[in-house]
């Protein structure tokens, strides 16, 4: 679906943000891009919809080079939800905000209406239909940005730090939502620092440091690798920390979420602790 081949990119300030990055994301993948501040995560995903074009190398979306098509037409395919929703929202009402891109893409009025209703309902924003986006809380604005993108039904959804500013329940809903989107066949790319969020989702992880991809594998393999997590400024999930501390009792150390932790401990603890 997305193919990144030997991409280099530098900002006008001279900062080399990407150094020969190659990556392949298949249709229906669920990928978390993780790494420290300034590792190049956002720069990389901005190449997926042509917001940035590589200085050298090539990015293909569905087989087409991003150099040869406009960002507007790529956006139909790759929906982008920015880290800061204020960089994305500008309409007078929540409803208009969601309708805006749909109208631009030339959807019929009837479809625009039903898609707006559907997307607002999905993200729990129906009661704000007539509200100004700027009256919403940070978490709500973030969900509005996501609703506007989902409304035009792109095949790839890129979310830059979706959990920032979200409280626990919203985060949990968002997690279920993202997992569901992916299960329905959407390609989902999440840029995130939120280790516990990733541990609960269990996607493929692409780990970046200093403009390069330093690891690419499943969540378990990467989050339990001490050297890798340190390199990428990640604190291992709490369950990993606990099980590493119990290694000498013969317990597994590659545990990342609380559900497997419970299962393992239930099998391991002696009968007297049980009812």
């Amino acid at each position: 679906m997305i193919e990144v081949k030997g991409v280099c990119f530098a900002y006008p300030t001279g900062v080399e943000a990407l150094k020969e990055v190659s990556l392949e994301i298949r249709d229906g993948d669920f990928v978390a891009i993780m790494g420290s501040n300034g590792a190049g995560k956002t720069t990389l995903v901005k190449h997926f919809n042509g917001l940035l074009k590589p200085a050298s190398g090539e990015v293909f979306v569905d087989g087409v080079s991003t150099r040869s098509v406009s960002t507007a037409s790529l956006a139909r395919e790759v929906g982008f939800v920015f880290q800061n929703p204020d960089h994305q929202l500008f309409c007078e009402t929540v409803e208009e905000e969601v309708a805006y891109a749909l109208k631009n893409f030339g959807f019929e009025e009837g479809i625009v209406k039903s898609r707006v209703t559907w997307a607002l309902n999905l993200l729990g924003l129906t009661q704000y239909r007539q509200t100004s986006p700027f009256m919403l809380s940070g978490g709500e604005r973030k969900r509005l940005a996501l609703a506007s993108v989902l409304a035009w039904d792109p095949q790839v959804v890129v979310l830059d730090e979706p959990t920032i500013g979200q409280d626990y329940e919203q985060k949990e809903k968002l997690r279920q939502f993202i997992v569901q989107l992916n299960a329905q066949g959407k390609t989902v790319v999440v840029v995130t620092h939120d280790v516990e969020f990733v541990a609960d989702c269990g996607p493929r992880i692409v780990l970046m440091a200093e403009g390069k991809i330093v690891a690419d594998g499943d969540a378990k393999e990467i989050l339990t690798n001490k050297e890798l997590t340190f390199k990428a400024s990640i604190v291992p999930p709490q369950m990993t920390q606990i099980f590493v501390g119990l290694a000498d009792f013969g317990l597994p150390t590659d545990v990342i979420n609380v559900h497997e932790a419970r299962r393992i401990l239930l099998g391991f603890l002696k009968e007297e602790e049980k009812p």
Partner: peptide, 22 residues
């Protein structure tokens, strides 16, 4: 209330639901 309690605390709560009291 749905506050995201630390995962370590959550593990205890979940074990307790299984009847394991630590």
């Amino acid at each position: 209330i749905g506050v995201g309690i630390p995962k370590a605390t959550k593990l205890w709560v979940m074990l307790r639901q299984n009847g394991v009291r630590l």
